[in-house]
């Protein structure tokens, strides 16, 4: 018997910012156990939403509902890979992963899952930008794996940026395994054609507002591509997913 935990529900969530509000009246129910893609043009509010869901910022209005029985501590509810990492201390890659509170062999397993075990002993500051990101990805996955699948959520802000296709695939596979295990997974990405075959549902943000939530084919209409990305394009359904075709950079 599988136990399915509660969904994560946002009701009328708003977040004010300097000048423009970052999020406006956002209501959506995010199911767990699915591969959820958070999409939207630059400045749409993706990172703000992930900050809200991770407890990094306080809501201006609205409520978050984690479901009955959710652990009181944020650290037991979610693992979060923010868009930027501040680490400069010369830990080895494996030591960085172990900061999630796991032992060395567990840390090595997580590096191996992403295909970067060969760099385990190398000092983190000497790694390339893409590899550093992968090390943090491994650390956040290690934290996520310590959470209970019925309540745990993983939020990932652009883990695919600066990765080649092989490593992007590793990251997407790792996230797919967590979703299949029942964890809530929300991935923000601009690499739509990498992420769309992976995604079961897409939450599209624009101007801090929820624009659409549903299957990729339904969300990415030519009208929305023109309105929010300023391009002419269309979604092409294919077996095992689909992809966006860009017809022109002019709308």
């Amino acid at each position: 018997m599988t136990i399915t935990g509660a969904a994560l529900t946002l009701r009328a969530v708003s977040l004010s910012g300097p000048g423009q509000p970052r999020l406006k009246d956002l209501s959506v129910t995010l199911p767990r156990g699915q591969r959820l893609l958070l999409a939207g043009p630059n400045g749409a509010g993706k990172s703000s939403l992930l900050d809200v869901l991770s407890g990094d910022v306080v809501l201006s209005a609205g409520t978050l509902h984690w479901g009955p029985g959710a652990p009181p501590r944020w650290a037991d509810r979610r693992a979060y890979l923010p868009q930027r990492n501040a680490l400069a201390h010369p830990f080895s890659a494996a030591q960085v992963v172990a900061l999630a509170g796991v032992g060395t062999s567990d840390a090595l397993d997580h590096l191996e899952e992403l295909g970067i075990k060969d760099w385990a002993e190398q000092p983190y500051p000497t790694l390339s930008g893409g590899l550093r990101r992968l090390v943090h990805m491994a650390r956040v996955l290690a934290q996520l794996d310590r959470l209970v699948p019925e309540y745990g959520w993983g939020f990932f802000d652009e883990p695919l940026a600066n990765l080649d296709w092989r490593y992007a695939g590793r990251v997407l596979n790792a996230l797919e395994r967590r979703a299949a295990a029942g964890y809530g997974i929300l991935l923000a990405a601009h690499e739509l054609n990498l992420a769309l075959p992976w995604a079961e549902q897409v939450l599209l943000l624009a101007g801090g507002q929820g624009e659409a939530f549903g299957a990729p084919a339904a969300v990415f209409t030519p009208e929305r591509l023109a309105a929010h990305w300023g391009v002419r394009g269309h979604f092409e359904a294919r077996e095992g997913g689909g992809r966006l075709l860009l017809d022109s950079l002019e709308p």
């Binding site: 501590r73 501040a86 934290q143």
Partner: peptide
Amino acid sequence: YQLGDREAAHHG
């Protein structure tokens, strides 16, 4: 703590 204030707090 070396992760930075934010990410260290993410680990509790």
